[in-house]
Design a protein around this nucleic acid. Structure first.
Lengths: 387, 387
DNA sequence: CTGAAAGCGCTAACAC
DNA sequence: GTGTTAGCGCTTTCAG
């Protein structure tokens, strides 16, 4: 920048003003401006973000702490978040919460003196107490996505698990299912909500949850399969399974194939998340899908504030314009704001995607029942035609 | 930092020296040091990375440009890279190369005046010419992972596709297969190498590639399925399929299930990548696995040089020799250095993982052949027992 | 309308 | 051993 200043014979301050489009305080010289801009282009000028940040300017960096990128659900989540982030001019810095020892570290590195403008937590971090402690001591805004209900200290956005599960069970029950089992996996928070919703729905349906109908396993396909085997040893056997994630549901489908249980004729399976793979299972998986992009937008909006034209301190933070409006709209679109413990959360309602893994309940006395395969009881649900 | 200086009555420089553990130039006062460290801890001092970076210090940020995080293979790759990065004290900044318009942007943002110490390209970016142009104009080291052979300008690390395919085909041929087809997907570079290796191996085996035995599709399961359908319309039908990625192979397996083709009795399938899902297909997928962690380490080593950096905040005065040495070792372990166009590449040799999707070729005149299911011809291949 | 100067938090010559 | 003095590249009062 000094170069371009001397080159044009103007002072650094002027250059700075011009390059930052700061018409606030003073009108800029029409001609000088052109000259400076031209020079800047010639030199291939790029502002040094560090020098900027030194003055308290936003770093345009968003920290994202994810449990497991390898989980297809979170892979999709990161993609959504990073896409939305970039429309606002932010970049994503990745952090893992894998190893006990590592957690504090990743965090420290990301936080050091507001290196990030905000931090996003993807998934329930309930089992990472130190991380959360550290996070609490910081002044950067932290927002949680899918943190589940446990940690009510951090504001965030979540999916309405109750509604999702209720819809899934409603769908199954409309198909004649009563003996519906549940397989829980992944995160404490989400699992708990989904399971609670399941228990509640079952109370309406059967009065209670039959013993053994709730299986707890790790969130891996192999564990889903194991859970299925356990469920199939029960009597009466369930005729339908609600898996708390698609990953588990995939394991269930695999298990069914291996065990020779026909889906959906003998067993219906519903997943949760609608990961890309859900379209490609055999049969294609009926599942619950949430509005990823909207949720990502909402989370980022909460994190960095959708400042619109800002001007809190009359400083020069009037950068990005265009993208911001679109994001603003998107950020405010949908999502019920609800109190969540001591913080606020924005809850998004998921929708059921009916594919081929659910069908009429097998009924002993009335074999014809199989042929009655009602459309989803929920008119709003999209029908997915794929495979 | 100024606070802690005045608090202890010492000058800033001294504090800086102590906090940075700089015994190089001068011996430090034993007592003063303690005092300063204590004060630092009290204030909860965190060095401001921007001020540091302003002096040309490394930012400890690594840019990672990925085509598609949603691809399970790249999800795993990112995990490996970010794990390795962190043992060296680096953080990963994510960039997508998705949209045409976006690319230049993501890049620009990541580069602006060496915001990143180095840039990692994950996957073949051959179709993003502008990105590559921009990258060429920069002074940050750029290293490519799995760029394929096309772009020989960027140094990088890759998998030895030729060896992988050769091993896979060797395995199939040992099982009696001759009519082996190939399905190519994903990146231009990798596909080309794998396909070339296939063609070559087939020349040895059959003299030529039967017409239609090479299918080109997008790298999605659905496309793998479509390719299978196309292959099954051929005559003679292939008895085995080499898919250029596991994602495609999964589609093939799905297609086989749908079409009622038994795997491996009627059709053997080999994938490439060994994504986590490969264990959970039905039947479990025989595939080619590369040493991810080593490759990630090698790439990072090439990018930042294995400088043995200090990790952590100066305040706590922690140096992580352990991790760093391990990384160093890992970085130099394995991988043949080979010339690659104008740049150097480090090539890692993959290994075949034999699971259940490959079996003896169906032979008309000798049905007993099915029972001869030889162990892998390759003694070094690990046998995977899962499901 | 533009220039001069001070300083963001830290490091790096140089002195003392 | 420790303090002084400059800056890194940029923003930002405050004077011209």
């Amino acid at each position: 920048m000094r170069d371009i200043a001397t080159a044009t014979g103007v002072s650094r301050s002027t250059v700075s003003r011009i390059l930052n489009d700061a018409p606030l305080t003073v009108p800029i010289a029409a001609r000088t401006r052109e000259r400076v801009l031209a020079a800047a282009r010639d030199v291939g000028y790029r502002p040094n973000p560090f020098a900027r940040a030194l003055h308290g300017a936003p770093t345009m960096l968003l920290g994202a702490i994810v449990r497991d990128i390898t989980d297809p659900f979170f892979a999709g989540a990161i993609e959504a978040v990073s896409a939305e982030a970039r429309t606002l001019g932010y970049n994503i810095v990745l952090g893992h919460a894998h190893a006990e020892a590592t957690e504090a570290y990743a965090l420290a590195a990301m936080l050091e003196a507001r290196q990030c403008d905000a931090i996003l937590l993807l998934g329930d971090m309930g089992d990472q107490p130190r991380l959360l402690d550290d996070l609490r001591d910081t002044h950067v805004p932290v927002v949680a996505l899918w943190q589940g209900s446990e940690l009510d200290l951090i504001p965030g956005v979540s999916v309405d698990n109750r509604s999702g599960i209720a819809t899934a069970i409603g769908h199954l029950s409309a198909l004649g299912h009563r003996r519906i089992a549940f397989i829980g996996g992944r995160l404490l928070g989400d699992i708990r909500e989904r399971q609670a919703a399941y228990t509640e729905a079952m109370a309406d349906l059967l009065g209670e949850v039959p013993p053994g109908y709730i299986q707890h396993v790790a969130n891996k396909p192999g564990d889903g399969e194991a859970a299925l085997r356990a469920l199939m040893r029960l009597s009466p056997r369930p005729t339908a399974i609600v898996a708390s994630t698609d990953v588990l549901a995939i394991g269930v489908l695999r298990g069914a194939l291996v065990l020779g249980i026909r889906v959906p004729e003998e067993l219906s399976v519903v997943g949760f998340d609608d990961i890309p793979m859900a379209t490609f299972t055999v049969p294609a998986l009926t599942t619950v899908r949430m509005p990823m992009a909207k949720m990502a937008a909402a989370a980022i909006a909460m994190a960095v504030g959708v400042t619109g034209r800002t001007v809190g301190d009359g400083a020069s933070d009037v950068r990005h314009h265009g993208a911001e409006d679109g994001a603003h709209e998107r950020a405010n679109e949908g999502g019920d704001v609800v109190p969540r413990g001591r913080a606020l959360a924005r809850l998004f309602r998921p929708e059921l995607v009916v594919r081929q893994s659910t069908g009429a309940a097998p009924v002993e006395h009335n074999p014809a029942a199989r042929h009655r395969r009602p459309e989803s009881h929920n008119g709003a649900s999209p029908r997915d035609r794929s495979a």
